[in-house]
Design a protein around this nucleic acid. Sequence first.
DNA 1: TTGACATATGTCATCGTTGACATTGAATCC
DNA 2: GGATTCAATGTCAACGATGACATATGTCAA
Lengths: 331, 331
Amino acid sequence: MTDVAREVGVTAKTVSRVLNDDGPVAVETRERVMEAVRKLGYQPNLMARNMRVGARDAAIGLVIPEMGNPFFGMVAGGVESVVRARGLTLIVGSSSESADLEQSLIATFLARRVSALMVVPSATSDHRHLRTERVAGLPIVFLDRPAVGLTADCVVSANREGARAGVAHLIAHGHRRIGFIGDLPATLYTRRERFQGYRDALDDAGVPFDRSLVETGHDQEAAQAAAVRLLALPVPPTALFAANNLASMGAVLALSRAGRRDVALVGFDDLPLAECLDPPLTVVAQDPEGMGVAAAELVLARLDGDKSKAQRALVSTRLLIRGSGEVPASR
Amino acid sequence: MTDVAREVGVTAKTVSRVLNDDGPVAVETRERVMEAVRKLGYQPNLMARNMRVGARDAAIGLVIPEMGNPFFGMVAGGVESVVRARGLTLIVGSSSESADLEQSLIATFLARRVSALMVVPSATSDHRHLRTERVAGLPIVFLDRPAVGLTADCVVSANREGARAGVAHLIAHGHRRIGFIGDLPATLYTRRERFQGYRDALDDAGVPFDRSLVETGHDQEAAQAAAVRLLALPVPPTALFAANNLASMGAVLALSRAGRRDVALVGFDDLPLAECLDPPLTVVAQDPEGMGVAAAELVLARLDGDKSKAQRALVSTRLLIRGSGEVPASR
DNA sequence: TTGACATATGTCATCGTTGACATTGAATCC
DNA sequence: GGATTCAATGTCAACGATGACATATGTCAA
């Protein structure tokens, strides 16, 4: 900025005034400044500016576990649309489901003085360390999974209810042996909730719970292997409930490769082209974009000074009946 | 930091020394400082630090057109793995395919003093304005699509070659009327290249080009409609070539809903569960993660001082034969 | 005992920017 | 014509951190 000022023959302050439309500036001076700015390719230093002004900057930080997982991609998309509409910038980083990386990402964001934080917590993280910031008035909203050790806003899917509905749907089609393919680790919030929904549905129908029908696989390949193991049981399940998108993909793959069109399948979370699969995939659809939007709106409300107590928003799910969930029980 | 210093009864400088492992500090002082840091929940102000040190910070900015599109998600994932391994932080923002938003995102990143820029340009953008930065030594790498009006590093798929191979595959199965479903706008780099590949394959085989077989749809729904239009032509195509993932999804949906298993289809870019579709989808697979990795490595090399001239890296594609592309020509 | 040296800490200036306040000159008013 | 006002610009300090250099204390060899 000093360079620009020297070029024009004024003080840095005057340049600052031009750039911020601050005090009065002579038309001619303004033009000469603008020209010098162009000529020198001057970029105002946001860091210095924010430091001086003391204001947290116009960026909001979002931490997600995986860039590659389309579910989080859609969540981020939802957040972004809202944040952008407010003229703020969204900064996204991924934690790879590691509590350490999550914490270091959060530290990076804080050090960069973001004006709010949105976090999809990784499986093993603890958020006690964020108490100070929360008390200091930094809006923090958790997405998809609630915070651990910290009371804070949070937007989650109706996991338990959705899973219950999905499994009840299978039971309604005559199934009593229903395999469950869930996330790793088993302590993960969404996994626990969906598992509870699975138990609920069984209990509601008086179907006994069989631990051997519960399998785990945290990526598509592992889920596929899990499905294969389930189908190889002495008394195999006649239906599968896949508790997340990757598990669904694994299950679809396993059934497809094994040519097992007699096994029913309901997935949690919708997949692209689910209706074109063979058979078309019945799912308990989440609304990832809606979650992002809801969370972002919550953050903006907090930024606007909403001081009401921390709330947990439930985003409902919808059972989309397409075929795979309506395969009747074979035995 | 001053607060911490006061708490301990030393100068800010001493606190700084402790935190940066700088000069010598008495063990006892160090401990007392650390304790005060914890107690007060002190967060060093990265902005102030970077300002003082003058260094660009340890963040790399990545601009992608869409958060929701899994293709870019995977690209970002690839970039991130490499960047993270170097201890740097990746900051991602989305431009919604708008040149204006892209430019403002870039400005935001520059103002934040990222140490390098990676950009998937939006369809209509121009990058002349980045000349100054490039000359000033800021590494800038373009991904998926090359820069416009600027010579810079760039990593792209072998679009033309891949499309040519995909269309040639259809021709080899007897098709001569092959519909093309491409991106919007038609001026988009990837669309142009893939279209050229389509033309190449037709020319190679001496198949006349028919303009009425070229349709456009920039999202899944539009692509589906485009496929429907193609199939309703007086002399309809016996095969379709979908030039990107959304187009493929639209085409699959259209064929599936119309029950047209007699129409062959090859998609550009792989889809999850493509092998479970009915028929399984033959694609020209890109390597989005590989593109991200390659681009990130290029950026790191530049950061390490590689001054060689701007290069364009081609990431090759693979034809994955699964069924939909081998449907024989019906007429 | 003294000076050379290392250790632990402090002082001051500075990074790029802007808030608070001062200065200058010209126009306006009574 | 002197007071008042306003426009245009300047001066200085400060944001939070650190680099360069200074100071104070202790240790040890000559």
